[in-house]
Design a protein around this nucleic acid. Structure first.
Lengths: 345, 345
DNA sequence: AATGTGTTGGAATGCGTTTTCCCACGAAGG
DNA sequence: CCTTCGTGGGAAAACGCATTCCAACACATT
């Protein structure tokens, strides 16, 4: 064997076994537009099956366009990513493409390295998911790499907020957060804590400002809104609540930047003897599976994750050339964790 | 452009820009063992950087072994999968390899299709993760495909239980479950409910039988062990508890086949006014992140997922040829959700 | 000075596939 | 009966790269 992972049975072998030329075999197996005689066709197919022939994608890629799409994500364990990937795979199948995923851990360095590495594979498209992708990341080298990929005929799609000049799909976090804030205000809440997450995660902080706008518009006094930063996780929500329990005597709503944070907050509140939603309302954001599994079920904002995934693939395989920027809006999902309240003034 | 995703800047261009021959450029960029004059080296490197040259992996793959490893998983949303993938990526980096993930939704048909598709990519190795992979799946076609891949010099590693003749890593679910069962028995529990999950998931049912063995060995009467099947999810755990609440007056322990099920069970118990662990002990299996985030923190069995991931890559890149079968054992993690009890006889 | 030896650049070759290009054959039209 | 045309098979080129081989050269040894 010449070296690992090189085919031992090639098109040549199939052609020989079928007693036809390599060209004919290629035409049968490669789905050419040219017709070949039925009997030849049959012989080639039979030979390929018995030899378990698989066309070498590398060699094939040298002559025709690739059909693989690579997805780059920060972290595979994010609850929402699963749905996006599933939708992408479904959509890709209808387009005859194939999705493959790489994770970077979210650090710009590894994002760059991953793009470089994947670019060598000459996929049909690269889809990047990240909370925020800035053009000047890693000294602009990520942008440069992506541009070079595009120059070579590749297609870049970004799912998330970005200022890069590629196709992008983003969620209108601000508007959705504003709507949630307004809803909370309208349902009579007047003393609110916002669990704003980490300042480094841009989409999360956008939500915090949206919350504030909605609350203010709904009549909540600026002084009655407290913003607490925390880790973006279940634990972060718990700790934030535990850490500021002292000042919570009059709070009637907790708005978390994220379902995970909200769930953590709920459990900490319950542990402290505060009833949700009877004493305090809690809301989340994202509508992950957990949101309907917990008790009480979480009032939150649903993001059209599956739609975004499918749309990303559609952008990735389309022919058009000018960059498209799509914004998808979330919608309020009212469940049990937030209760309208009328309180004495 | 000939067709999409074909490079416009090739090694040829770099060589021309640097004023050297293609061979020289290849030698410096391809990490050849042959030395080239420092000044040439520098010129080539500079030219490659300004042109943003990336060697075409396809073309390169035709002459040397690939450095990509493909991982096939059932479902990306499984909480445990993230840690496995992360460990794999880390280990792969030290071996100069690169991991890419595809998900199949767990259906044998799509597993087969995915293997076929990936095999064409001629990766260095294919790592399969599945709860259970049988040789006779899809009429043995999956096995045939994998054998053909191996015949062509590829390497197959299976993470999970299997009877296929490839490298494999499995977890000793039975022994770990037995140990947990014995622990529960020894800490004085005498009336036990096992939330056994779905019969279709082999690794999960193995746990149930292990629990029973351990409980019996620890002195729990056969009649005092009830097995309830449920969906393998948080919701499944909740519903199982709700559905059988009536007969729970004397139960003092609930053993779930899975952390997710355990968490669901805990929340349903709490909703029903049963205190965990004061009234009933609850245990899980897997030690996912959630296990330490919930209150009370879950007593469970930790599986060496990261080790398994790293070991899988090590097997995938090793030179040896005879199949290796590794079994990794889990260990009991005692936290707060199970309490020793002394009950009146 | 002639010969041997080691180093380095460049031309040529090959990897497996698709895709021209060319040619043979037979049918249709005059 | 001769020409034209469509059909379909096979030879060969091309894809981008690594590598083998060869020639040129520098240097040390005799």
């Amino acid at each position: 064997m010449p070296h690992a992972a090189r085919p031992t049975v090639t098109l040549h072998d199939v052609a020989a076994a079928a007693g036809v030329s390599v060209s004919t075999a290629s035409r049968v197996l490669g789905g050419s537009s040219r017709t070949v005689a039925p009997e030849y066709q049959e012989r080639v197919l039979a030979a390929a099956a018995t030899l378990r022939y698989t066309a070498d994608a590398s060699a094939r890629a040298m002559r025709r366009a690739s059909d693989s799409i690579t997805l780059i994500v920060d972290d595979l364990t994010t609850p929402s990513i699963g749905m996006v990937v599933a939708a992408m795979e479904r959509e890709a199948r209808t387009a005859g493409a194939f999705v493959t995923v790489s994770s970077t851990g979210g650090t710009p360095d590894r994002q760059l390295e991953t793009v470089r590495r994947l670019r060598a594979l000459r996929p049909r498209a690269i889809v990047l998911t990240s909370s925020r992708l800035d053009a000047d990341l890693v000294g602009g080298r990520l942008l440069g790499e992506l541009r070079a990929y595009e120059r070579d005929g590749g297609r870049v799609v970004i799912v998330g907020d970005t200022d890069m000049p590629f196709d992008s799909i983003s969620f209108d976090n601000h508007a959705a957060a504003r709507a949630l804030g307004a809803y909370v205000a309208e349902t009579g809440h007047r003393e609110v804590v916002i669990l704003a997450g980490d300042v480094a995660r841009a989409n999360v902080t956008t939500r915090a400002t949206g919350f504030i706008e909605g609350l203010r518009a709904g009549g909540v006094a600026p002084d009655s809104i407290r913003v607490v930063h925390c880790e973006v996780s279940r634990r972060g929500g718990s700790e934030a609540i535990r850490g500021s329990l002292g000042g919570f005597t009059d709070v009637d709503a907790v708005l978390a930047a994220n379902d995970l944070i909200a769930v953590g907050a709920m459990s900490a509140l319950r542990a402290a003897g505060v009833s949700v939603p009877a004493d305090v309302s809690v809301t989340g954001f994202d509508d992950i599976q957990l949101a309907v599994d917990v008790m009480p079920r979480l009032t939150t904002v649903a993001l059209p994750l599956a739609d975004a995934g499918a749309e990303a693939i559609r952008l990735a395989v389309r022919e058009g050339t000018e960059p498209a920027h799509l914004t998808m809006s979330g919608h309020l999902v009212v469940r049990d964790s937030a209760l309208p309240r009328t309180r004495p003034r």
